[in-house]
Simulated scan of single mutants.
Amino acid sequence: MSKRSRVGREMKATWDELCAGDEVAVHEARKLSRRAQAELRVSDAGGRKRRAWRDLRRAAAPLRDHDVTGEHLRAALTELGVEDSTLAYFDQTWAERRSRLLAQTVWPERPRGFDLKSGWRKEARHLAERDGRHLLKQGQAALNGGEPQAWHDWRKRLKRYRYTLELLGQVPPVLTEVLKALGRLQDAELVLALLHAEPALLRYERARLIAREEAARHAAQERVRELFPALTGLFPVQSGD
């Protein structure tokens, strides 16, 4: 039996807030686009709908990256015990940066809903099994000295895998924990990239901020390595693999 996806209705409900740049709406739009990506793989929807949700995700990405980076920078400044005047200056300049970024954002046409085709559960199980084999190899490559992009690509695939499992109502806690660690890893990469690209940004605290994020990156990678043996139990292994 076919099933109507909820992502279109949920996106419609938050669309005005998203276009206004609401921080929560931006975050929700990113999550909805990821859910849609997983659901579209088991639906009869064509490439046009896939592109619509992809375009939305790409449009929201710079704002979401800005918000996440700002959250970590402000938390770090607070943790480092900077003066209130420094925090106030950061808040003002970061808000100004966001306003400029929002003004440059071009939102695509709102993505519409779609139906999951009859037999979507069977297709979801098939995709989860197939993805699992690839994710095992991709994860091993990332852990064995992979570059930041390798970790990031693995995280994106794991997120899609998670949403596929969510369709089936079975998201193992270890997968959630791995994604949490990978999310912190990616956030650290974003902060470090910004600090290296803009030496004048928070220049008096720059060295300490870089050290903090490098430590967070290392801790996140170690956490993933710790969890990886349990994670591999989720992935099917074919004879000859």
Score class of each variant (00 low, 15 high):
155 R>Q: 12
144 N>P: 01
143 L>V: 04
2 S>L: 11
66 H>C: 02
26 V>T: 14
188 A>L: 12
70 G>H: 05
93 T>I: 10
153 D>E: 13
219 A>C: 01
143 L>K: 06
24 V>K: 14
193 A>G: 15
21 G>A: 09
131 D>S: 05
82 V>W: 11
114 F>P: 08
19 C>V: 15
196 H>I: 03
147 E>N: 06
159 K>M: 04
158 L>N: 04
12 K>S: 12
121 R>Q: 13
44 D>Y: 03
29 A>N: 03
187 D>L: 07
177 E>P: 02
238 Q>A: 15
179 L>C: 08
219 A>E: 14
26 V>H: 09
167 L>E: 02
69 T>G: 01
82 V>R: 07
43 S>K: 10
1 M>N: 02
36 A>N: 10
218 H>K: 09
176 T>M: 05
183 G>C: 09
165 L>G: 04
54 R>A: 10
164 T>N: 01
20 A>I: 07
98 R>T: 00
109 E>C: 01
203 R>A: 15
20 A>G: 10
132 G>T: 01
106 V>P: 00
156 K>F: 00
71 E>Q: 05
13 A>L: 03
241 D>R: 14
49 K>C: 07
44 D>Q: 13
121 R>F: 03
16 D>P: 01
104 Q>L: 13
156 K>N: 02
57 R>D: 13
83 E>G: 11
25 A>L: 13
163 Y>P: 00
200 A>W: 08
98 R>A: 04
158 L>C: 11
99 S>I: 05
227 L>M: 12
102 L>P: 10
239 S>Q: 14
235 F>R: 10
145 G>H: 02
99 S>M: 06
83 E>W: 04
103 A>E: 15
239 S>P: 08
131 D>K: 00
144 N>F: 05
97 R>M: 10
98 R>G: 05
221 Q>I: 06
207 A>K: 13
145 G>V: 02
140 Q>E: 14
220 A>P: 02
168 L>W: 04
215 A>T: 12
238 Q>E: 15
207 A>T: 13
10 E>V: 05
157 R>N: 09
59 A>G: 08
68 V>G: 00
124 A>S: 03
30 R>Q: 12
97 R>D: 14
196 H>G: 03
43 S>M: 09
62 P>E: 03
218 H>P: 00
192 L>R: 11
28 E>M: 07
156 K>P: 00
228 F>S: 07
220 A>F: 06
202 L>C: 08
58 R>K: 04
147 E>C: 01
168 L>H: 03
120 W>T: 09
192 L>C: 10
176 T>N: 11
82 V>S: 09
177 E>Y: 06
23 E>D: 10
108 P>D: 01
241 D>W: 13
91 D>P: 11
17 E>P: 00
199 P>A: 07
14 T>D: 03
211 A>N: 05
9 R>F: 04
159 K>P: 00
149 Q>M: 04
101 L>Q: 13
183 G>I: 13
76 A>Y: 00
